[in-house]
Design a protein around this nucleic acid. Structure first.
Length: 268
DNA sequence: AACAACGTTGAA
DNA sequence: TTCAACGTTGTT
């Protein structure tokens, strides 16, 4: 029931200005697409229990060098807590904790003697495949754990088949895939719009807000089409509402829009 | 906090 | 290769 809506922008005469590049239909098709490089069967059938997740989420030094040419300004490396926050506010660590409570996730002692091949070549950032800080114990991150725990990866979502897909889907990170967690980007990921909130369902740019007027340099989507999910900081207030069973997605948009209008916040 | 600018990602 | 737009950083 994703009927396209087209809330009037700052003025009622803006519709004619919509860019030819703007899709004339809701964005669901592209949102549903997933180019995840690995299928679930890949992880299940991979002979080595340790698919090179470290390589996926932490590129090699050579990859990092390639990803960051010398002429570009050095950017702050994303911190690991940041890496593990979901746009809908659920820390992956919380998901892991839930699994632990359900007895589905094993913990290993905090040994650092590098007994396996995965342990060698730990770089200065200290990011291996174990994540003690999040759980107070070591969290062995292996993709094999997710199938074991009933998690499925697909459609850009992490689902839990064991807990009931409907219930957990809203809890678990949306818009992320292992690939977007750094498989090819050296850690920088790009969230996707939810496609369901009111702004996402707008079809046209207003062409009057600062983002529209400054599109060449600003590289920003029309203010009235900016996804509500993307407006939130990952791991922000959304977390509580999502966990407690409420999905406030888009609920504050109308209020915010009315407020913006009354305040004249939008330039134009 | 809002805005502007830019680098970068990801899809077409 | 192009383009839309997200993420980050600096400025106001």
């Amino acid at each position: 029931m994703s009927t396209a809506v087209d809330i009037a922008g700052p003025s009622s005469s803006d519709q004619a200005h919509s860019s030819a590049k703007i899709p004339n239909e809701p964005l669901r098709p592209s949102l549903k697409r997933s180019n995840h490089p690995y299928s679930l069967s890949h992880y299940i059938s991979t002979p080595s229990p340790a698919v090179d997740v470290k390589g996926l989420i932490q590129p090699s030094q050579a990859q990092q060098r390639a990803a960051q040419p010398a002429h570009t300004k050095p950017r702050r490396a994303p911190s690991w807590p940041d890496m593990w926050e979901s746009p809908s506010g659920l820390h992956l660590a919380h998901a892991a904790e839930l699994l632990m409570r359900a007895g589905l996730l094993a913990l290993t002692p905090a040994t650092t003697d590098g007994s396996g091949p995965e342990e060698e070549e730990e770089d200065s950032s200290g990011c291996g495949t174990d994540f003690q800080p999040f759980l107070g114990a070591w969290f062995p991150f292996s993709p094999a754990l997710f199938p074991l725990a009933g998690f499925q990866m697909g459609g850009g979502h992490w689902r839990s088949a064991a807990m009931g897909a409907e219930g957990i889907e809203g809890l678990v990170a949306e818009g992320y895939s292992p690939g977007s967690l750094g498989a090819s980007s050296g850690g920088r990921r790009k969230r996707k719009r939810c496609g369901e909130c009111v702004p996402c369902r707008r079809q046209t740019n207003c062409e009057q807000c600062s983002s529209c007027r400054n599109r060449k340099r600003g590289h920003q989507i029309c203010k009235y089409r900016k996804c509500e999910e993307l407006k939130r900081k990952p791991g922000g207030p959304g977390f509580e509402s999502r966990v407690s069973g409420f999905d406030l997605r888009g609920s504050d948009f109308t209020l915010g829009l009315a407020q913006e209008r009354s305040n004249g916040a939008l330039d134009g």
